[in-house]
Nucleic acid binder design. Sequence first.
RNA 1: CGGGGCGUAGCUCAGCCUGGUAGAGCGCACGGUUCGGGACCGUGAGGCCGGAGGUUCAAAUCCUCUCGCCCCGACCA
Length: 578
Amino acid sequence: MRWSNYYLMTAREAPRDAEVVSHQLMARAGLVRRLAAGIYTMQPAGWRTMRKLMAIVRREMERAGAVELSMPAIQPAELWEESGRWFKYGAELLRMEDRHGRRFCFGPTHEEVITDLVRRDVKSYRQMPLNLFQIQTKFRDEIRPRFGLMRGREFIMKDAYSFDADEEGLDRSYQAMYDAYSRIFEACGLEYSVVEADQGAIGGSSSHEFMVLADTGESAIASCAACGYGANVERAEVGTLAQPAEGGGNAGGDGPRRVSTPGATTVAEVAGMLEVDRTLVVKTLIYETDDGLAAVAIRGDREVNEVKLLNVLGGLGLRLASAEQVAEATGGPLGFSGPVGLSPEVRLVVDESARALADFVCGANAGDEHLVSVRWDRDVAGARPLEWVDVMTAEAADPCPRCSAGQLRISRGIEVGHIFKLGTAYSESMNCTFTDEQGRLRPAEMGCYGLGIGRTAAAAIEQGHDDDGIVWPVPLAPFTVVLSSLDPGDEAVRSAADGLYEELEAALAPGGFDVLYDDRRERPGVKFKDGDLVGFPVRVVVGARSLRAGGAEVSNRQDGEREVVPLDGVPQAVLSRL
RNA sequence: CGGGGCGUAGCUCAGCCUGGUAGAGCGCACGGUUCGGGACCGUGAGGCCGGAGGUUCAAAUCCUCUCGCCCCGACCA
């Protein structure tokens, strides 16, 4: 491709709304253009990167036995009502009506459509296993789209769905996708890790996320270097916590004592006023759930993980209760709640972090008062059975939940892939059944597997850039090589560059590599800056000076290492750098 | 949805407080000088100042409404 005929316009400055580096560079390099909040045009060079990524994804999906198809983006409401998600999915589901008043949505994902398809076609265990995938535009009406392609509303996703006759089959299909995803991110040259994940709105029994490691990632990951445990912090478990402090002066006694704690509404204030360690205070939060109010007790130095809590309590969502609701549940004002004497209407769950506590401090459910010397068995369990749960947020240096030696480390990542074992959740609700070997009717065991195309490209930039611009991994660069002719007016240079261009195209094509020939009538500085900005992995420069030095200059974007090689040696020199 | 901010040339922004004929840099076009890391000089094109309404002799500027965009938050008792 000749740049003079191509559509690739760079800019010195990024648009004001570009916040993260991948978005700024994609905009400056002329790869994407924002059309509306969270909605982008892929300009030609950006689309080339997407196409290369999609080719890698296709190759590995097919290698793993998946079969490509294409499903509609617009989907009828009835299907979503059948699965129960028309209401459950919430406001992220973009809904619309046609001229007859029939209701549709723009598909955020395709479980309903694929399940509907397969239930009509697949009737026997002999037709399975099956794995179907597509690469297609999705729409999710995010509350707050941001960060360019990282969290768009309209985005391109590879989604795959597996159907198996039994759980063992699902395990095999899941593992095949796990391996395929690993090969994909490997092939892209990305540094990634695989972690256990929360299932969220999709539902199902187990899942893993593929995270590209980057400090700007929106996801927090807890991992253990000793045993390899890794999980999204939304889900991460924690080993048994040490209980560093003793009850001190509050130990013993026949029961809880009321103490005055005027104005102390936070754990830190209470601990300071009573001169006890924060780990000896039990924090009690009141939540509003789909089933009424619930109280969560947790050790004072710990934070509640609302994703875990939602999984424990069930329902679609939860929020911290208002002051009025707290008064209804506890009889006291906000800031003085405790597990003793809660309204019997209120469900109480207690985090494991507070289990080892005896003679602890907690709110008295009365203004400006706390209780000291409280015990679970004697003072709380009498009124109600205790429900021990894990709803704490993992923190750095927490003990590993899987091995005795390790400590958790918290890092950040960009979620580029997510695989789920769905089990029979959809096949049951949508009646996707088959006849097994014994002639019985059974629901199919399903899995689903998503991979964000645009987000992976953005993640590659987050991981690969410097002050001058993008540093693409070779497989994802819009063009592998940029050939810059510095003196297009000079006949010797022009013919040398023209010749090189043809030779390079021929030499690179078999490996799937490509060349952008910068034949524009621009000054050298502009060509260098543009090449660095767009991030072509290898640069070949031909100019009057390089010809005098014996040929063309070949260099790498990544480390800038350059050499002058004779013209006929250029293709080989380029290939050796890929 | 709550809070904050911003909409002026293709891009980044000034002008607004204190109303009086629309500005800069980059980019673009043309001419000249340059030519290995975003050149310089000159000339020029390009704007219903997001939209509607109001106040005023007069509105980019003041007021009201509206649309769009961005950021933070939607959290700890």
